[in-house]
Design a protein around this nucleic acid. Sequence first.
DNA 1: CGTAGTGTTGAGTTTATTCAATGTCGGTGG
DNA 2: CCACCGACATTGAATAAACTCAACACTACG
Lengths: 256, 256
Amino acid sequence: MNKNQTTIVSLLKDRASCKGCGLASLCLPVGLVENDIDKLNSIVTRNTPYHRGDMLYNQGEAFSRIFIVKSGSVKAYYEDKDGNEHVVGFFLPGELIGLEAIHTGLHSCSAAVLETTAACEVPFEDLEKLSSELPSLQHQLLRLLSREVHNDCGMVALLGNNSAEERVAAFLISLSSRFQQRGLSAHEFNLSMSRAEIASFLGLAVETVSRTFSRFQDKGLLEAERKNIKIMDIEALNEIGGLCASTAFQLGQKHA
Amino acid sequence: MNKNQTTIVSLLKDRASCKGCGLASLCLPVGLVENDIDKLNSIVTRNTPYHRGDMLYNQGEAFSRIFIVKSGSVKAYYEDKDGNEHVVGFFLPGELIGLEAIHTGLHSCSAAVLETTAACEVPFEDLEKLSSELPSLQHQLLRLLSREVHNDCGMVALLGNNSAEERVAAFLISLSSRFQQRGLSAHEFNLSMSRAEIASFLGLAVETVSRTFSRFQDKGLLEAERKNIKIMDIEALNEIGGLCASTAFQLGQKHA
DNA sequence: CGTAGTGTTGAGTTTATTCAATGTCGGTGG
DNA sequence: CCACCGACATTGAATAAACTCAACACTACG
C-alpha cells in the first residue's frame, strides 16, 4: 500500500468536528479547515441505520446523491435481463457508493445493504457546488473517483487472467487490508456477504468458492468457520493472489 | 445509448474555436463559452503524431498529465510480476487516458499506441485549477471519471459472468457503437489491436477469440478479414452480447 | 423440533485452454 | 520480382479447470 493513500479517516478521527460524521473520506488529508468541514457537514444527511436487505438505490433509478458507509457493508449488483444478479462490488466503512451514476444521471446497478449499516448521504448537486468553492474538496472527489477507476482496472485484470484460487486469495487480501485500514484486525474478520455473493463478484460458481476455501484451509492458510475468517498465513495468500500484491491494485475496494 | 450521453464532439464539432482541438470531450455539452474554451486551450499541448509502439506513459511512472485521443487508438495494459501483459482497456478518439493514476499519483498501468495516433496532453494540475474556476468543466471532469467507473463495472460484470461468445459479441458491439458515435461506420471498421490483445482484454485465449470470430462468420453474423470487420447482423450480435445491450453499460469504452 | 437457507462435498460434463501444426500476410533482401 | 522470414491468425486434438447437478450437513430461526 502506498503511504500517501493513508485513509483520511485515521487522520481525522480525533478531530472533534468530524468524529463519527462519516465524512472522513471526503475530507482531504490536508486542506479542509474546520470551517470547510462545517460547510460539508451542512449538506450531509445522517440516516437512521439500514438493515440487511435495505436498498440504497435501485438499478434504473435517477441519480441524486451519493452514500458514504460509516459502519457495516453494502453490495452493488447488476441484474441482467433474465433476472440474474451479478455483484460488481462491495463497500466497507469509509467508502463512497453511487459514483458510477454521475455520468448518465441514472443508476446502472443497485446497492443493497448486507448487514446493519450506518451510512450518510450527500446530494450530489450540493457536493459539486461546494467542490467548486473548495479546491481541496474537488481534489479529493477526483481522487476518490480515480481510485474507483484504478480498483476496477485491477478487477478487470484479475477476472481476465486469474484462476479461482488466485481470485479468492486476492479477494481475502483485499478485505483484510481494508479492515486493517479501518483499525480492525487484518487476520480475523467476519464476512457479511454469502458465498454466493463472493462467487458472483469473482465470476465463479458457489461450489468453486467453497472448495477453494476448503483447500486453503487444508493447506493451513486460513480457518473458515462459515462467515468467520481467520487468516493464518497472509504471506502465502499474498503469494497466490499475486496480481494485487505485486501492484498498486486494491481489489474490490470501491473507494478510499 | 442514452440521449444525454451524446458526445460533446458532435455538439462542438463545428465550433471554430474547438474544431480539431481534441478538447471536445472536456467541453461540457453546454456551459463552456468561447472564452472558457480559450482558457482550456491554453493549458493543452498538441503533440506530433505518435506511432505504433510509442508509450504515452509507463506503469510505475509519476502521474502528471492526462491524454486525449484525437485520432487513432491506444491500449492500456498492466504487466504482472512474470512479465505477462494484461490489457485493461482500449481508447478511441475523444477518450481520456490516465485517469486511473490521479489517486496515487503513480500510473498503475502502461499506455501504448496501437496505430498512428494524434493525442494532446493536459497537465492535470492545470486542469484541476481551471476546473475550480469553471464549474461546468468540473462537472464534465466528474462525469468523465464516472463514465469510466460505469464502464469498468460493465466489464467486471461481463468478465465475471459471460461466455467467450458473449464477450466477443459485447466487445464488437462496443467498438461499433463507439465508431458510430464518432461519425464512422458502425458496420465496417478496422481493428487496430491484434487478436492477442483482444483475447487479453476479454480474458480469453487467442485461439478462443479466433474460433469465436470464425463461428460468428459461419453463422453469417459478420465477415472478418484479419483486421477488417464487417458486421452483417448487428441485432444478432446484440442478442448474444446481451449484457451491455440490456443496460447502460458500454464496454471497453474508457471515457466519453 | 422441523424447516428453510446456506454451505460443503462428490461425480460427471462442459467449456475454454494448451499444445501443436498449418496458413496467411507484409516486409526485406537477394 | 520473387523467395524467404517472422509475426500474426486459424484450425485440430487432447487436457484441464471450473461448472452443473445432486446429495448431504450445518445453522439459525420460527
